[in-house]
Design a binder for these strands. Structure first.
Lengths: 232, 232
DNA sequence: TCTGGGTACGTACTCACGGTATGTGAGCCA
DNA sequence: TGGCTCACATACCGTGAGTACGTACCCAGA
């Protein structure tokens, strides 16, 4: 379809029509959504570098003019996709946490939700695989910080504070980072395993075991050192 | 410097001159090394996408003909850089492990070596940040599998077998993956912290604490479940 | 109802960059 | 000393990101 000048004549399906917006604004928001939708799909399937803007605008049935009207460039478009995937993931995890009061139960529910999220191709590709490279580590970290990682931190905080110890903020961050990395890697293992279900069970077993270690230490009254440990 | 036809007249510094090779072969190997050297430097500094082949060949004082004679393309060149960085990292870790007999001591030494390696800008940029994106996850995993991850696996194996438990191969892989992810993330935290030394100490403290949990479980005679855990 | 302005695009173009086809001179071997 | 091959150099092409500019449409105000 080389020319699609008629496309602006057909009424664009406005997704969710916001009542307090003019028709122009609705159309605009619609094309923007369409761009992000197509971009998310193509980025997920072929990756960032292998996806051309021409393919994206063709899929959204607009031209590059529209794209550059809404986004400052390819990277900004990727960022919009990234943010949406992250937000969805974070919401899914928070939904799983809702209602759980016991911190250990909460942790397990969070783990399972995360293991589910990390199976999504779009999350794997956009966030884990290409996020650090495309956004750069700084921006990547900023985004993670206020979405998925925030959930992990909250879980760790509740688990820690439920134990007998208490912890300064730095150590809490450190523990959270470690668990976050552990879960990311575990999720990657699960999603790329030949048998993801069995792999997920193994991960759950392993994490549970580690948490049991924590409980054992708590029962034994071992303190959590927050200062420096003497090195040999 | 637009023309550098003289460059092939100046005797190229042959790095380590292999005795059993003709002058042609030595020159060839030298230019190949130069290409990888420059590429490593530029990839580390500006990233993969922001580094043009023109810049690389200019830095190595050759032309694209030379580059495409030695490598099939930009990605292949990156792969060569990646492999070298990985190999160096693996060697550094193995060197740190040498001589340690006690598995716990070994684990700690490995941790420290890894935390050191992950501070290197080239490792952070080439391996962690851009490796998954440029190589794709499959090739990335293959490479990691037989270098840094192999070290982690060996450490975990020795620690596990030193405890009272024993473990089937799948669970061992799972544990290793988890620890590998934990350490990667921890390393990232350390390297991007405002005070890396203090951050490294916190990481050591945290990891040590987790390992203490393992020991506590071992002392208590808790078994490591290798089968499936019943899910609620 | 007309009109001016601004928004939301479309069109045509530039330029940088990865990749390729082909030329060429220096080295090894007979 | 000739020929052959390797190790490049040179010139070129296609693709794709980004830009400059034109334009149709909607909405507010008169």
């Amino acid at each position: 379809m080389p020319k699609s000048t008629v496309s602006k004549l057909v009424p664009k399906v406005p997704g969710v029509s916001v009542p307090g917006a003019s028709r122009r604004q609705q159309y605009s928001a619609s094309t923007k959504r369409a761009l992000v939708d197509v971009a998310e799909s193509l980025f997920t399937e072929h990756g960032y570098a292998a996806t051309s803007l021409d393919a994206i605008v063709a899929g959204a049935r607009v031209t590059k003019g529209a794209l550059y009207h809404h986004f400052s460039g390819k990277q900004a478009l990727f960022e919009a996709v990234f943010e949406r995937v992250e937000t969805d993931a974070s919401r899914a995890i928070q939904k799983a946490l809702r209602g759980k009061k016991d911190p250990w139960e909460k942790a397990l529910a969070g783990l399972r939700a995360f293991l589910t999220v990390v199976q999504e191709p779009r999350y794997r590709r956009v966030v884990i695989q290409e996020g650090p490279s495309v956004l750069g580590y700084e921006r990547y970290r900023e985004q993670e910080e206020r979405s998925t990682f925030a959930n992990v931190l909250e879980i760790v905080r509740s688990v820690i504070s439920a134990g007998t110890w208490e912890l300064d903020e730095d150590m809490l961050q450190t523990f959270s980072r470690i668990f976050f990395g552990a879960m990311s890697s575990a999720g990657e293992t699960v999603s790329s395993a030949e048998d993801p279900i069995a792999a997920a069970e193994r991960v759950e077993t392993a994490i549970t075991f580690i948490l049991q270690g924590f409980q054992a230490l708590a029962d034994a009254g071992v303190e959590l050192p927050s200062g420096r440990s003497e090195s040999s």
